[in-house]
């Protein structure tokens, strides 16, 4: 059967795509799955930094596509988790260096020997996004509880639907429960009312995310932070486990209410 290809995208930049990709990948790998991350943001690579692997890059995705190296040579082994690999983006090229067909070809080669292939999509709705979307079996849309991010997420959902992919799943990132309680932030209900797709995770705002990203250590490897636990829960839901949201946010009335909205569906066929 082979790997599932999961594309993490958002439309709007800066909502936490790269952090989400790195953390879900780390959590899946920590659970014993074989995981490859692909940074599809050619020219603005970041995933290597967040995963703390920048200094190990020799070959990148464009080198693979253009035949300068074997796929295997571009796969950087994670330094903490076994079974986790990164194929970095090229820093000196742009999105035109690869095509959607290239992405399908590269992932086809990876599917055999892995369980998950996570693709970190660039922001926007242009070529880079199309590249990242082309091979996807599952599309995860990251958004923040703010009007502009939700609007862009809606746009992306429309584009994913137009490609006749399965409906994407939503990750609501950087939620501040205090602000929601005071009515100063969009509620998950508000977001879901517009987007009307399955919510697969809610990640609270957590300062540790920033420090972890700067250090290049995905939080999900350390179960002590709330955001890290939220990313772990998303990974478990992807693996088909039933994980209610209460598990990491029981103290929170808002999150408890919202958890009713989460259908923790199994792995899509």
């Amino acid at each position: 059967m082979g790997a599932k290809v999961v594309t993490v995208t958002s439309g709007k930049g800066g909502v936490g795509k790269t952090t989400t990709t790195a953390n879900i990948a780390a959590a899946l790998a920590a659970a014993g799955h074989r995981v490859v991350c692909i940074d599809a943001d050619i020219g603005l690579r970041n995933l290597d930094l967040v995963m703390g692997l920048e200094n190990r890059i020799v070959y990148d995705l464009v080198d693979v596509v253009e035949g300068r190296c074997k796929l295997r040579q571009a796969m950087i082994k994670d330094k903490r988790v076994p079974n986790l690999y990164l194929i970095p983006a090229a820093q000196t090229r742009d999105k035109t260096a690869i095509s959607p067909e290239d992405m399908i070809e590269v992932t086809a080669q990876l599917r055999r020997d892995n369980d998950w292939i996570l693709i970190d999509s660039p922001a926007g709705i242009e070529g880079g996004f199309r590249n990242a979307l082309a091979p996807a079996d599952i599309v995860l849309i990251v958004t923040n509880p703010e009007v502009s991010a939700v609007r862009d997420a809606d746009r992306i959902i429309g584009l994913v639907e137009a490609e006749e992919k399965d409906p994407p799943k939503l990750i609501l990132n950087r939620v501040k429960p205090d602000m929601v309680r005071r009515g100063e932030m969009l509620k998950a209900e508000d977001v879901l009312e517009v987007l009307a797709i399955e919510l697969i995770g809610v990640v609270p705002e957590d300062e540790q995310v920033l420090t972890a990203s700067n250090r290049g250590t995905p939080l999900a490897l350390d179960g002590r932070s709330r955001a890290g636990r939220a990313f772990q829960a998303i990974a478990r839901r992807l693996m088909g486990e039933q994980v209610p949201l209460e598990e990491f946010a029981a103290e929170d009335g808002f999150l408890r209410r919202l958890s009713r909205k989460v259908r923790t569906g199994g792995q899509p066929a």
Partner: peptide
């Protein structure tokens, strides 16, 4: 017969 999303 579907929802029109942003940009459509």
């Amino acid at each position: 017969e579907r929802t029109l999303r942003s940009g459509q």
